[in-house]
């Protein structure tokens, strides 16, 4: 992930969570608050119009955490729509979903996901997994950046 080649400037200290389940949204918020209190988090429950909204922004999130199973524009379609826009190519997209099906993994990678992360039921494990993914991409983006 390199900064600043799309339309908007990349804000590596910010994470956009696309998640329709209120329970999962609460769990993600709680987990990230505990593990990365410095991270700015933003939550949206639907993917409809999201790509257009991102393109209109001055600052893009460094990372998008994407649920696959959503009403309206589903996760796969949203992922494809994000990856279809060169302006958003520097945004890291992490699919965060409750399936470990190899078919789902392959489909997400083929559509351009940077990571495919299983969403466990147990909160401690949930927090560990989320921390692992955020830490990994923070490490990739280099020291000194928020992500």
């Amino acid at each position: 992930m390199t900064a600043g080649t799309g339309t908007g400037r990349l804000d590596p200290g910010s994470v956009l969570v696309v998640e329709d389940s209120p329970e999962d949204t609460e769990a993600i918020e709680r987990a990230l608050r505990q593990t990365h209190p410095d991270l700015r988090t933003e939550f949206v429950a639907r993917g409809d119009g999201l790509v257009e909204a991102l393109l209109a922004r001055e600052e893009l999130p460094g990372l998008i955490l994407l649920d696959l199973n959503m009403p309206g524009v589903g996760g796969h379609a949203l992922l494809a729509a994000i990856r279809a826009r060169p302006e958003l190519r520097d945004v890291t997209v992490v699919v965060f979903t409750s399936s470990t099906s190899p078919h789902e993994v392959e489909a997400s990678y083929a559509a351009g996901a940077d990571s495919y992360i299983y969403k466990p039921v147990n909160f401690r494990l949930f927090r560990t997994v989320l921390k692992g993914a955020v830490d990994y991409w923070r490490q990739q983006s280099g020291p000194g950046t928020g992500l």
């Binding site: 099906s101 495919y116 692992g132 830490d135 990994y136």
Partner: peptide
């Protein structure tokens, strides 16, 4: 095994 490997990363 594919599922277990996927579950283990990054847990």
């Amino acid at each position: 095994l594919g599922r277990v490997a996927r579950l283990a990363v990054p847990a």
